[in-house]
């Protein structure tokens, strides 16, 4: 995969720290599964966690903690996956679905029950709890997404097709890592639908009246 747009270092650091909201962490994991360069940086960021663990003060464990622990060692691992129980997920057959996303969908992208958002734009909510939002967006060729700004961070990962905006052209594997200072209007610019994963840590702000009207309805 030929990736040109990568994760921001600040995003990678938060991911390694376990400090990203769930949806954004999912998107980061998806990009990492496709991008060896960002993966290497992620390992470096995790080493920070190790260093902090080396320097943190100690908090005493319960007196019998070690004893209890040793007794647990011989117990069978109840969480170990049983191979025969792993049923094949049809989503895994879709090469546009990165590994970490397979845990959240059970169909290939084309067979998901997409919901209409605006003419030429459909979405599929991944139903992730917690801060921010996380959804798949499907944009028909030539369609422009309503111009919007952000209060917090917005991460977009292209899974299929491509789009262009003020920052350039984004193709499968590319990630747009934007924060509050930007305002942009992506346009799907190839012959096929552009499907992307979008995760935010705060609601988007649409500039147009229509955008502001649909926003509460669609829960963006």
């Amino acid at each position: 995969m030929n990736i040109h747009h990568h994760l921001d270092d600040a995003t990678l650091l938060s991911y390694a720290a376990g400090a990203l909201p769930q949806g954004m962490a999912l998107l980061v994991a998806c990009h990492l599964s496709w991008c060896p360069g960002c993966r290497e940086k992620m390992h470096q960021a995790e080493a920070l966690g190790g260093a902090l663990l080396d320097t943190v003060e100690e908090t005493a464990m319960a007196e019998d903690a070690l004893e209890q622990m040793m007794a647990l060692l011989d117990q069978p691992d109840s969480k170990a996956p049983v191979v025969t129980e792993l049923k094949r997920n049809p989503a895994a057959q879709d090469s546009a679905v990165p590994g970490p996303l397979e845990h959240y969908i059970d169909q290939p992208l084309d067979r998901l029950s997409w919901k209409m958002l605006a003419p030429g734009i459909r979405h599929y909510d991944l139903g992730i709890k917690g801060e921010g939002s996380c959804r798949l967006l499907r944009i028909a060729p030539g369609t422009a997404v309503m111009p919007h700004g952000h209060k917090g961070n917005e991460l977009t990962l292209i899974l299929r097709g491509s789009y262009s905006d003020e920052f350039g052209r984004f193709r499968a594997g590319d990630v747009a890592d934007l924060d509050s200072e930007v305002n942009h209007q992506p346009i799907a610019d190839s012959g096929e639908d552009c499907i992307c994963l979008i995760a935010t840590d705060a609601p988007l702000h649409f500039n147009s009246i229509v955008g502001r009207l649909v926003q509460p309805l669609i829960g963006l």
Binding site: L13, S14, A16, A17, A19, E131, G152, D179, D201
Partner: peptide
Amino acid sequence: VVYLSFYEGRSHS
């Protein structure tokens, strides 16, 4: 910011 991220799990916002 490094400590707040790693030790307290705080997001950017």
